[in-house]
């Protein structure tokens, strides 16, 4: 995991972004809501590193603060989708009788593109932070449920599961102590990908104008506001855009790295070979 440079880099970038976002209020030179009409759309300078927007607000401060929302939405959605998806996947993979029904429901969810589903849900529920989280969770948990179900089906056939049953273990114990620890790696990998996808989806929703309340800056809403100034004030679009690109890229790299680290079948630089 730590042997590959890209994995270390991804981890560093993510830590830096998270740290910067959490501590932002203590060190930001400008408040993200501080309006300065005299400095509308000024280019990046020593004072305003990323320039200013159409209200003269500091783009750097707004980009950093916007990360709070993006990361929070991504993280919470990843957590909820993982918990719900894992539970459904485990139950579905373990109990064959409920499997058929649960999986048809999941198929129903998967029939819609995730973003479209989220868009429809937010449109119906109204655009608040909580509703966005609910909508994105509903959009992403089916994928997790599918992944967990197939991993469960695989592990269920191992003979240690049978052994656990014959020593009197209840279904609950079998699922939590025998199956869950052995499917943890795909769960972790998948949840990093959901994290990244949720950030993108949140940005897309905000860009389409159905996102979080406009007073809180998010990368998506910043892009939306900036698009009309794209030719005269490109910095206004570039920096929030870069925020999305870098965070999502780092998360995806991390997910790939975790998958390689967990998966013994992947060829490592020095393969471990069975001597027969």
């Amino acid at each position: 995991m730590f042997q590959k440079k890209t994995n270390v880099l991804a981890l560093c970038i993510l830590s830096l972004i998270v740290l910067a976002t959490i501590t932002a209020q203590w060190w930001l030179p400008f408040s993200p809501t501080n309006i300065d009409p005299e400095k509308r759309l000024t280019a990046p300078s020593f004072d305003h590193w990323f320039g200013t927007d159409d209200f003269g607000r500091d783009v750097f401060a707004r980009t950093v603060v916007a990360a709070q929302v993006s990361l929070a939405v991504g993280g919470i959605v990843a957590l909820f989708a993982t918990v719900i998806g894992t539970t459904i996947g485990l139950v579905s993979g373990y109990f064959r009788k409920v499997d058929f029904i649960l999986m048809r429901v999941i198929d129903g969810f998967l029939a819609f593109p995730a973003l479209l589903l989220a868009l429809a849900l937010v449109a119906a529920l109204g655009g608040s932070l909580i509703n966005i989280i609910i909508a994105l969770t509903l959009a992403f948990f089916p994928v997790m449920a599918r992944v967990v179900r197939s991993a469960t089906l695989q592990v269920k056939n191992e003979s240690y599961i049978e052994a656990a049953r014959t020593t009197g273990a209840s279904h609950f114990v079998v699922i939590t102590r025998y199956i869950f620890p052995n499917i943890l790696s795909p769960v972790i990998v998948q949840s990093t990908f959901i994290f990244a996808k949720a950030i993108l989806a949140e940005a897309a929703l905000s860009f389409l104008g159905v996102g979080v309340d406009p007073s809180t800056p998010t990368w998506g809403s910043m892009l939306q506001e900036a698009q009309i100034y794209l030719t005269i004030a490109p910095w206004y679009s570039i920096f929030p855009g870069l925020g999305i690109v870098i965070t999502v890229l780092a998360l995806n790299l991390l997910g790939d790295g975790l998958r390689d680290a967990f998966d013994p079948h992947q060829v490592k630089r020095k393969p471990r070979t069975k001597v027969a």
């Binding site: 191992e158 003979s159 020593t167």
Partner: peptide
Amino acid sequence: TSLNPRMKAGESIAAPLKA
């Protein structure tokens, strides 16, 4: 394949007692 790869030897043996 008959032992849970994530369980220590002692835990595997204790599992039936706990059940």
